[in-house]
Design a protein around this nucleic acid. Structure first.
Length: 118
DNA sequence: ACCTTGACGGTTC
DNA sequence: GGAACCGCCAAGG
């Protein structure tokens, strides 16, 4: 299917997010060559193979929303899990606020040119 | 085939 | 800041 191709692009892109950094859904969508389709990123992440809470090849937890917040209801199990995983990488999460100024991933030219050719 | 539901985001007020 | 609105589109009912 074609949408499977989109998911692959998204997963591939998410894998490039370095440890200790985060990216937004919209940013990932853009980098994956799917501008304007941030919601699709959320969907794709929910369908990551091995979708359990154990470590997957795709660091889904490094993706947050444009407001710098975790997109799960505060207090939910998923919220806690994501927060924990982020904090394990020294990403500061205070009151569901992440400082994008210091933690947002800014891909360098090398990555844009060679790792993502969409 | 129609309707609803999202791990969203930008614009506007 | 925050809330309302709209655009987005794959899945599931």
């Amino acid at each position: 299917m074609l949408q499977r191709e989109n998911y692959q692009r998204i997963w591939h892109t998410v894998q490039l997010i370095p440890k200790g950094k985060v990216a937004t859904y919209g940013q990932v969508a853009d980098l994956a060559g799917l501008p304007g389709r941030a919601r699709l990123v959320g969907k794709a992440l929910g369908k990551v193979p091995q979708q359990g809470w154990q470590q997957s090849a795709v660091p889904w937890y490094r993706v947050i929303n444009a407001q710098g917040k975790i997109s799960f209801p505060i207090g939910s199990e998923q919220f806690e899990r994501q927060q924990t995983l982020l904090q394990q990488e020294n990403v500061v999460v205070l009151g569901n606020k992440i400082n994008l100024k210091s933690h947002l991933w800014v891909p360098d030219l090398d990555e844009l040119l060679f790792k993502l050719s969409f």
